[in-house]
Design a protein around this nucleic acid. Structure first.
Length: 265
DNA sequence: ATGTCGACGAATCGTCGA
């Protein structure tokens, strides 16, 4: 039996799987990761393209909804113990899917989330974001007890620090940048999770999202809001973490770039 | 503040969300 040198996981907000399926398949062909978490499917489970992913070597579990939100996990190996949304937290928006996969050194719990955007501080949507983040944190506390080897990935819609924003001064206090959102991000780290991207030296102005407007990508006016957090039990196995900007250069790109995690076998 | 997208309904654009 051939032993894999490494396991790779990735997260990508693809802003409509209906539109972006060809790009996801192209990216997987060039980047044959073991696990991929997708956000903003914007389609119902009945329309999820299982056949296309299966042909590419992936099985998938999805949690979709019409028009908005929707998340999925793709994996080369079986996805077990699938959980949809935050247990005990009543929510009519499809934002979380979690599953257990075989990992290097033992099973790996993968939690994939499309965190609430929150629109603007003071809005009802911001209040919902705060409640959602609180519920996530409380659920993850137990989830980490049950599954010490855990990865939390997704579109967090939070720029954790000033260096994660193209304009930390001008955008101070606005959505993605508020103290309240950043406190929630720190609370997740306080559970024993580490921001895998920051375990390594990274280029300055590394971002994962750029507004479609105003030539955001061309001017690198972006935010780092897509993250992969790893539990303490996994930390020593993290070999690398990087953002792949290449799909953002394509025609008809998602506004987000994939983030990739390398785990040592 | 926003020149872009994408989904939707019911128009071939207006509205919403991001």
């Amino acid at each position: 039996m051939l032993e894999r040198a490494e396991m790779q996981l990735a997260t990508w907000n693809i802003n409509s799987l209906t539109v972006r399926l060809p790009q996801v398949l192209d990216w997987l062909a060039a980047n044959p990761v073991d696990v991929l978490g997708l956000q903003e499917l914007k389609l119902v489970d009945e329309k999820f393209p299982h056949d296309a992913f299966h042909a590419a070597g992936y099985q998938a579990v999805s949690f979709g909804q019409r028009t908005y939100n929707g998340v999925a996990l793709l994996s080369r190996t079986p996805l077990e113990e699938v959980v949809r949304n935050i247990p005990g937290h009543d929510d009519d928006q499809a934002r979380v899917i979690a599953a257990t996969v075989d990992g290097p050194g033992g099973p790996l719990r993968v939690v994939n989330g499309y965190f609430v955007n929150g629109q603007a501080p003071g809005s009802d949507k911001f209040d919902y974001k705060m409640r959602w983040l609180q519920a996530l944190q409380e659920w993850l506390r137990g989830e980490l007890d049950r599954h010490p080897r855990l990865v939390l990935m997704g579109d967090f819609n939070i720029a954790p620090e000033d260096r994660d924003s193209f304009d930390p001064v001008g955008l101070a206090g606005t959505i993605h940048h508020t103290e309240e959102e950043r406190a929630h991000f720190q609370a997740l780290l306080g559970l024993g999770l580490a921001d895998a991207f920051r375990l390594f030296e990274q280029p300055e102005k590394s971002f994962s999202w750029w507004d479609y407007r105003m030539l955001g990508f061309q001017k690198n006016r972006g935010l780092r809001i897509d993250h992969i957090l790893v539990s303490e039990a996994l930390r020593a196995q993290v070999n690398a973490c990087h953002i792949d900007r290449t799909p953002r250069k394509n025609k008809q790109p998602s506004d987000h770039a994939p983030v990739v995690l390398h785990l040592a076998a």
